[in-house]
Design a protein around this nucleic acid. Structure first.
Lengths: 254, 254
DNA sequence: CGTAGTATTGACACTCGTCAATTGGGGTGG
DNA sequence: CCACCCCAATTGACGAGTGTCAATACTACG
């Protein structure tokens, strides 16, 4: 990395980066569009760092350049529900000027901040960027609906199988899967809080999946041994499996 | 109603209408903005009518002018998860050009269709309208996150209490609550499918709430007898209770 | 006055949560 | 380099919350 660039808070980006891959995966994005990110503030955060809290008014949007994070809500008796687990390349949020959820890192991460004003200003010259952001939000929406289905109608085994496949697919899209194995720096507690399960039950279920030779999870990694069968378990559901993603914002005003 | 207008598919709207109330509740909307709706196609649908299905490409967005509806997903073994229950004035969707969920009415309804192209075209002269739509989507997003918390971390009693309060609040905003009682044309099966519970358990829980003199649900109506206590039950959760809504789209490019 | 869908209730099974104790790994200070 | 500590992972035992099955009572509507 260029020391000067780093000193200025501007680290050059490469097309192999998850964030760039992610953006280009949802539609045509030019170098010019990506510049919006290049020019922005960039910073590192250790594991477990708070990124924003419920009620915060940021004026910016955060992207996860490297590392893992999560967005969550708390109940006043301490229960936590993770709304989404964020992998490299993901849009962290917040989705509204004042955040309605908490966000924190799970591993040491590199965060990219872009001011909302900037995005708006660039709508004219870098339409690809705001369109990409719109698409990212749309897929976040989709993910959330899918999680709702899991929590409402799938049992523990199905939920975990589904999560593994979902993460597998998301990582694959940004080039972070090698063969049938990928990094998964989630504690069982995090998995539980994401899927509405207790740590103990996550552990039991993980063991069941391992004994059934479907997948092995642990040591910060996950390995899928039998993708087909795992998919069967995962989606006793999924009606019509709508294909990939479209380059369309929510409701896409286009 | 004017026979002529009806014949043309254009029914004049009044400010007392839930749909108009809903739009104005999220921000400044002018008569001109509302015209976008006036000019659009309007139609009636009986109870249980399908509005769109997973995979459909509509080219339009639907609004629920009167009546109740729901958006849902199906698992291939028949399990259903209702993603959201829609009350008069709600934006039905779909949120993406090709729908990723099913939508159907629950009661006889009046539906308003607006073409996406039209919304885009009006962005210039009726900015208030597309801004309002953006805000509606943002609140839908918020609702979905909240439902996720319910399904993941609340028990049956809390979920139902929460649903009652949520619907109460949504109806209140569009002027459909009289005192502590409101219409609730949901079968226990629908409630169950929305909250990830079985019909039987919904019934049991409803009875418990009734016996605790918190709320009575039945005969297409709900009555809240003890709002304060019900709220206590509902949200063992809700950290900081972020206030009302802001006139800001998701990420609001403004 | 049927017929069908909805609401209710009881009995019972099973998934999943809670409690508590133990193990295993990875870091840290002596 | 070892002792210690803390956190994550495991496991067993037990109980609470929910689902399932099945029978019965309503209600609405044609």
């Amino acid at each position: 990395m260029h020391a000067l660039a780093e000193h200025l808070g501007q680290v050059p980006m490469h097309s192999s980066e998850p964030l760039i891959r992610k953006l280009t995966s949802v539609g045509p994005v030019t170098n010019r569009d990506i510049k919006v990110l290049d020019c922005s503030h960039e910073e590192r955060a250790p594991a477990g760092a708070d990124l924003f809290s419920e009620g915060d008014s940021l004026g910016e949007v955060l992207f996860l350049r490297t590392g893992w994070a999560h967005r969550y809500r708390l109940l006043n008796d301490g229960r936590r529900q993770i709304v989404n687990v964020l992998v490299p390349g993901d849009l962290i949020g917040p989705f509204t000027p004042t955040a309605k959820q908490f966000a924190a890192t799970l591993t040491p991460s590199s965060i990219c901040r872009v001011s909302r004003a900037d995005i708006a200003r660039r709508m004219g010259d870098c339409p690809g960027f705001s369109a990409a952001v719109e698409a990212l939000i749309a897929s976040e929406f989709e993910l959330l609906a899918e999680r709702t289905v899991s929590l409402g109608r799938r049992n523990a085994k199905e939920r975990i199988a589904f999560l593994l496949l979902e993460v597998y697919e998301r990582l694959r899209r940004v080039g972070l899967v090698n063969g049938n194995s990928f990094e998964l720096p989630l504690t069982q507690e995090v998995i539980g809080d994401a899927l509405g399960l207790s740590v103990v039950h996550v552990n039991r279920t993980l063991r069941a999946l391992r004994e059934a030779k479907l997948a092995t999870v642990g040591f910060g990694r996950a390995t899928i041994h039998d993708l087909a069968t795992l998919a069967d378990v995962a989606s006793a559901g999924e009606g019509s499996q709508v294909p990939a993603e479209e380059m369309t914002g929510i409701i896409s005003l286009r």
